[in-house]
Amino acid sequence: MSDSKKPHRGLEPEVAEKLKQQAAELAESTQNGDYARSMTLINELSEVRDQSLYREVGRLTRSLHEAIRNFQIDPRSAEQQEALSKMTDASDRLEYVVQMTGEAANRTMDLVEETMPVASGVREEATALRDEWQRLRRREMEPAEFRELYGRIDRFFVGLAKDSDTIYGNLSEILMAQDFQDLTGQVIQKVTTLVKEVEEQMLSLVVMASHVDQLTGTVHQIEEKEESPEKGVGPQIKAEEREDVVSGQDDVDDLLSSLGF
């Protein structure tokens, strides 16, 4: 293990120095047969060890606390500053992201559903008019029919301008409905930063705990917890780098056809 070479993380130089010095003294007193002194030194040594452990745990706790305290999106707002648990706050923020994206998706779909019939209406009338127009060009049209067509074309132009405005307006609104990305992006970035900070601190705690385990000779029985594919595990990230995951519909189709589908 590299632990013997590398000074323990968080072990201050003066502590390390003290340990070295005491170890040397211990060797000397043991050699000289001064066992009372040796025992005192051993006690002192373990005290130094305990203190440095406590200090390390204390330091990590402080930085963890700091990381959680620093998690604030809008420090100007008083009620946010008063939020008791920043972790709860983080899940609230993610809840807000779900809500914002949901609203934007629904708003967009409302507009799309409103616009589609307008577009198909224009298309239908244009097709009908083109047929009539061709009849006119082939001189298959009675004067009365022509007068009717004349009025219809007029109405079509008026309607076309109005429908184009509707379509254009709805497209603009669809564009505006995407403004959630800016807000949700900021929130997600903040939460990501918190998660990263907490992860780092947790990692330090785990490393720390493993040192404690090493010193005390503790062995833990940790059961492997596996996610159940039957329950569903959600979208796969970095699918193209993984063997056990399909990277798209083509992969699915290949897999299914290899199964005789």
């Binding site: 594919p229 039957e230 569903g232 595990v233 959600g234 979208p235 796969q236 699918a239 056990d244 995951v245 399909v246 990277s247 798209g248 519909q249 699915v252 897999l255 299914l256 199964l259 589908f261």
Partner: peptide, 30 residues
Amino acid sequence: VTAEAKRDQIVAAAQAGVNGYVVKPFTAAV
């Protein structure tokens, strides 16, 4: 029509008798 994209899952769905499997995100054409 699902985001579940593990090969094992697709095989399991096929064995359970699914008639088609579309992974999200998908297109209208698919």
